[in-house]
Design a protein around this nucleic acid. Structure first.
Length: 191
DNA sequence: ACCGTGATGTTCT
DNA sequence: GAACATCACGGTG
């Protein structure tokens, strides 16, 4: 079952935790690809020095301020796309970074897009999974309640919370346990 | 297996 | 002009 709008309208930490075990799907002209979400991070707007929305609304972050259930993508280090799910209601700028997937559908297409054969190298990082699912900058603002990209109910995994990855610049916020993982899953970007 | 480093293009100051 | 929610590759052990 495809997740309804209401799923995304809750606070970012709840959405980040509950996305673990759900299935992220893209259905593009090239084919359908999907994977189970096994790693997420919550970014919590005004109270979170690590969040892009911490310093207010800009051209890049305006989608954060809309209603939940839309896609926020951005280019990082000039090479990689990161895929995020906007959470909470309008004017509460929270989002969830999808950091790793366990590949399910369209594995051959993912291998082609990634130019890798090892299953573990397809979706074990935010840039990797974006490439594997064919997610580009043009997905900025896409509706997760549409047909091109969406999330479905799938499995239930035991969940662990850890510090977020690569947010050392954020001071105290770097210590918050706002990364959620499917405990022990072998497709994580890191343990 | 682990570690160090360079690539590369937006965004924001 | 610096910083950046990363990745791939080459070195070493």
């Amino acid at each position: 079952m495809k997740l309804p709008r209401e799923f995304y309208l809750r606070d970012g930490l709840t959405v980040a935790r509950e996305l673990i075990g759900k299935k992220l799907v893209t259905n593009l002209p090239e084919g359908l690809t999907s994977g189970l979400i096994v790693e997420t991070e919550a970014y919590m707007g005004a109270i979170d020095a690590a969040a892009h929305s911490y310093r207010g609304k800009t051209e890049r972050t305006k989608i954060f301020y809309g209603a939940g259930g839309f896609v926020y993508v951005y280019l990082i280090y000039g090479r990689n796309i990161c895929t995020n799910v906007v959470a909470n209601v309008e004017d509460v700028p929270e989002a969830v970074l999808i950091r790793a997937l366990q590949p399910v559908d369209g594995v051959e297409l993912m291998k082609r897009r990634r130019n890798k054969n090892n299953l573990r190298e397809l979706c074990s990082g935010p840039g990797k999974l974006s490439q594997a699912l064919g997610i580009t900058k043009s997905f900025y603002g896409s509706d997760l309640c549409g047909e091109e990209i969406f999330i479905e109910t799938a499995e239930t995994f035991p969940i662990a919370a850890t510090k977020r990855i690569n947010v050392d610049y954020a001071g105290e916020a770097a210590n918050y346990l706002w990364r959620f993982v499917a405990a022990g899953n072998k497709f994580l970007s890191a343990n």
